[in-house]
Write a protein that binds this DNA or RNA. Structure first.
Length: 391
DNA sequence: AAATCTCTCAACCGCATGTAA
DNA sequence: TTTACATGCGGTTGAGAGATT
């Protein structure tokens, strides 16, 4: 199946190709993808290698159907970010942008055809749910007006279907929520809030010395709550085989997944840091009714993962307030790694150190405490330090 | 049972961006 | 400053599987 352009192969990857790529990454780390073809027998272009690694070969990818919680996150984030699949997927550990994109383009798009709205009530609507948000308009700096519609109730998420209301498709609001600016993009370690070069991190992680931690990284047990079991089968060229490759390639290696990082704990820190920096010396005002606050309501185990992005730190300061509001819309006050991330096992997602504890650091919140969570639940507003578990 | 349709997902492509020489 | 290269992202496509007729 050789394609043109230097006899580079195209099409589906074989198990042998996967093994070559995994072996290469194990030795050299990620990045410099074009060198793969030069230094191995793999006849794939760099882009193809990168894509294969990112979407199928890298450790701790989650496969299987999206959970209701993941679907909720996708829909909610899409309502804010539009087709920023990479950003959205950054909030879903183990999920790729391609998966999120496919999900949106199929399941959710189907709902439109069925006359069901893409977004639950209370969620701001992306200008065009099937395409990227429009370029920043003169109105783009405006926050969505407070909605009189019922807030999205995560508690109703007994099933993916129930997540969506049965109301006819809403008229998409003309404004665009300007939140695609500050949160996502680059992974951040728990040890440092500084952006990390993924390649450097990768290299670092490959030399990590913690066999026990490594084991938890690659141990498939309980790692996928969606039910995609670990099936070592060399005959399978796709996901299952990929996991077999991992097992073989990394099981007894000093390998640490460069992607999983600190179970996202540092990401929250980075977000809060950024938000704090942005909001410093500025009065923080929170919308009393803010759908973003619904995040933490649905379950005590819910998690929301934010990631920092260098580019977004350079947002013009004139938009600080609305940016901050947007950030806050996205960040639950207390981030906790969900069981589906940890596979029900604190160690299964394999942070190399005990840095996960940073997830339970409500004191990190730079935001004012308004009242108790219970009270806030009643009034429709919540504080960052007092999260309602379930209202 | 066969044909057709629909859906899902992996992969490719083009463009944008970042970076080093 | 320019250029070339590497990487990342989002849109699109096509094959295969399953569902429907």
């Amino acid at each position: 199946m050789s394609g043109g352009g230097g006899d580079l192969k195209k099409g589906p990857w074989s198990a042998a190709e996967d093994a070559i790529l995994v072996e290469y990454v194990k030795k050299h780390g990620e990045g410099n993808w074009n060198a793969v073809q030069r230094n191995t027998s793999l006849m794939r272009c760099g882009k193809s290698c990168r894509l294969r690694w990112a979407n199928h070969l890298r450790p701790n990818l989650k496969k299987g159907a999206f959970t209701p919680e993941e679907e909720r996150i996708i829909v909610e984030l899409h309502s804010k970010l539009g087709n920023k699949w990479a950003r959205i997927s950054a909030h879903l550990p183990g999920r790729t942008d391609n998966e999120v994109k496919n999900y949106w383009n199929t399941r959710v798009k189907r709902r439109l055809r069925q006359g069901l709205p893409l977004y639950p009530h209370g969620l701001p609507k992306s200008p065009n749910p099937l395409s990227s948000p429009s370029p920043p308009s003169p109105l783009s700096h405006l926050k969505p007006p407070p909605t009189s519609l019922p807030l999205f109730d995560p508690l109703s998420l007994s099933s993916p279907t129930s997540f969506f209301s049965l109301h006819p498709p809403s008229v998409l609001s003309p404004h665009r929520v300007t939140t695609e600016n500050s949160l996502l993009g680059q992974s951040v370690s728990a040890q440092s809030l500084a952006p990390i070069d993924p390649f450097h991190l990768s290299t670092m992680c490959f030399n990590f010395e913690s066999p026990s931690a490594i084991q938890t990284q690659i141990e498939p047990k309980g790692y996928d709550p969606c039910g995609s079991a670990f099936v070592p089968n060399s005959e399978l060229p796709s996901n299952q085989f990929c996991q077999k490759i991992y097992k073989e390639a990394f099981d007894d290696q000093n390998f640490m997944n460069p992607y999983i990082g600190p179970s996202n704990s540092g990401l929250l820190d980075a977000l809060l840091q950024e938000a704090h920096a942005r909001g410093e010396n500025k009065k923080f005002k929170r919308e009393s009714v803010d759908f973003g606050l619904q995040w933490e309501n649905s379950s005590s185990e819910n998690s929301y993962v934010g990631v920092n992005k260098k580019e977004e730190q350079e947002e013009e300061m004139s938009s600080t307030n609305e940016d901050l509001s947007s950030i806050l819309d996205l960040i639950p006050p207390l981030v906790r790694v969900p069981n589906w991330c940890n596979g029900g096992d604190e160690a299964s997602m394999g942070q190399s150190s005990a840095n996960n504890t940073s997830l339970d650091m409500p004191q990190l919140s730079p935001f004012p405490v308004v009242g108790s969570a219970e009270e806030d639940c009643k009034t429709g507003s919540f504080t960052w330090d007092h999260l309602p578990r379930i209202c």
